[in-house]
Amino acid sequence: MLTILFDGFAYGMLLFILACGLAVTLGLMNFINLAHGAFAMAGGYLTVVLMNRYGVSFYLCLPAAFLVTALAGAVLERTLYVHLYDRNHLDQVLFSIGLVFMAVAAIDFVAGSQQQIIQLPASLRGRFEFFGVSVGVYRLFIIVICGLLTLALQLVSSRTRFGSQLRAAVDDPSVARGLGIRVSAIFAVTFAVGSGLAGLGGALGAEILGLDPTFPLKFMIYFLIVVAVGGTTTITGPFIASIILGVADVAGKYYLPDFGAFVIYTLMVAILIVRPEGLFARSAAR
């Protein structure tokens, strides 16, 4: 029971790191980016290639995955995404689905359709008992890393000048612009960091989530659930939604294995029917 909670928690943390970039993109520019998972996949594949072909250490691969996908995110944002901010949601959905299809086929072409395997370093393998709870070392590692990142994100958004500008821009982009905040520059940086985090999440999650070319499609729904349920105005909203989703998914697969992902889809639809703006939307709280 506690082990399930623990695994679910780790899974949820991972989902949060993967999805928080999407939450900010959606909250800041009202942009539905279905291609977010493609960045995560890019991070995962980069790690696989670096480790298996060039023998780079796993610990070095993680920051590399972050940096490279952040760079890719920044380039794509400046060249492609920037044209789509003032389009309607249908255009954005179509555009990002197009990107996903391209990414899936391209990865399939380059790396093949088989599942990729990452050989974790010995120090991260194995489990140990802790007060009767069986704890996987790698899952603990994920929780620590993601916990630190979450803390850092929270601090940046609440304590720094950049964070308050970001929050102002999320609340009302046009007023923020009127106050002299460079919203588009902020967005570029945030998009890059969000993509980078997705890449890092993809690298971390390759072991747990599995990595093959359909990754962006398979997990798109998970990221969207996090964002739709958690709302986009805070960091805590998506965080709590991720944890709920992670625990529910792991518990659902454990207790009702026949139903697979049925549990979380039902949970999501039920939540959205009751609270269409998400669990933690500020407009709903007012």
Binding site: L26, I32, H89, V93, I221, L224, I225, V227, A228, D258, F259, G260, A261, F262, Y265, T266, M268, V269, L272, I273, P276, E277, G278
Partner: peptide, 25 residues
């Protein structure tokens, strides 16, 4: 009927996935 475009996307997609799971089950 309620919610934003995103909510509608998620609900329509979610219902389809539920059906898929049911058909599989």
């Amino acid at each position: 009927l309620r919610g934003s475009d995103l909510t509608r996307l998620m609900i329509t997609l979610g219902l389809q996935l539920i059906l898929l799971e049911l058909a599989n089950r």
